[in-house]
């Protein structure tokens, strides 16, 4: 599904550029659940942003389902990401002035879908994630765990083949975190490819493979202990 070849990322600083990622080459097969680990500043979130096509300014090659992402224009990249990638963030990033149902509808509103189709998909997601009773509430009226549940529902509502998560349980207490990880495991069993950034060895064990980064370099790849 994903193939990175000698991927590099730097930011311009004086006297020399600061390297965030160095010569990253890896593949992720469809249906995998991969955890990216490493100390702060290792380049984990930068790598996730590139995989999520939010950042197109990098060197090397990024192939997604045989498409050369590194050759796409920003507009083409956004269109591909819209159809293919769901993102879950540590801070949930729900829109405060929209209800749960409106937040779920947001990514669909940027797709070429009829309003009836969108409403059906929102209703299905509310049902699937057991949040029908919360549909008219605003994010501030929900607990952290419930907000992250809505964020996951929003990320997968369009059935993207790839789900990316950046420290998805970082702001949750352990029980809520476990529930979110169980949800990820279930989505993965249903066929969604998942790549998560995590500091937690326990969360990484939900995945089948761990990729470790250090100072922007791929330090090690292996299976969870």
């Amino acid at each position: 599904m994903i193939r990175l070849v000698e991927l590099e990322k730097s930011v311009p600083t004086k006297p020399s550029p600061t390297w965030l990622l160095r010569r990253i080459s890896l593949t992720v097969a469809p249906g995998e659940f991969v955890s990216i680990m490493g100390p702060s500043g290792a380049g984990k979130s930068t790598l996730l942003a590139i995989l999520g096509m939010l950042d197109g300014e990098h060197g090397g090659e990024y192939w997604f389902r045989e498409q050369a992402v590194h050759r796409l224009s920003p507009k083409q990249r956004t269109a591909l990401a819209r159809e293919s990638v769901g993102f879950v963030f540590q801070q949930y990033h729900l829109l405060d002035d929209l209800t749960v149902a409106e937040n779920l509808d947001l990514p669909l509103s940027y797709r070429n879908l009829r309003s009836g189709e969108r409403a059906a998909m929102v209703a299905d997601a509310l049902d699937r994630f057991n949040i029908v009773g919360k549909k008219d509430l605003y994010p501030a009226q929900l607990s952290g765990g419930q907000q992250q549940l809505v964020a996951v529902a929003r990320a997968v509502i369009g059935n993207p083949p790839l789900l990316l998560a950046d420290e998805p349980t970082g702001n949750l207490h352990s029980e809520q975190g476990r529930e979110i990880m169980e949800l990820f495991a279930r989505l993965n069993r249903q066929g969604t490819t998942i790549i998560q950034v995590t500091h937690s060895e326990e969360n990484a064990r939900y995945g089948r493979r761990i990729i470790r980064l250090k100072d922007g370099w791929l330090a090690e790849a292996g299976v969870p202990a």
Partner: peptide, 12 residues
């Protein structure tokens, strides 16, 4: 956030 969810710059 909307950009990250797939909004085109023109729609913003």
């Amino acid at each position: 956030m909307r950009l990250a969810l797939g909004a085109a710059p023109g729609s913003l």
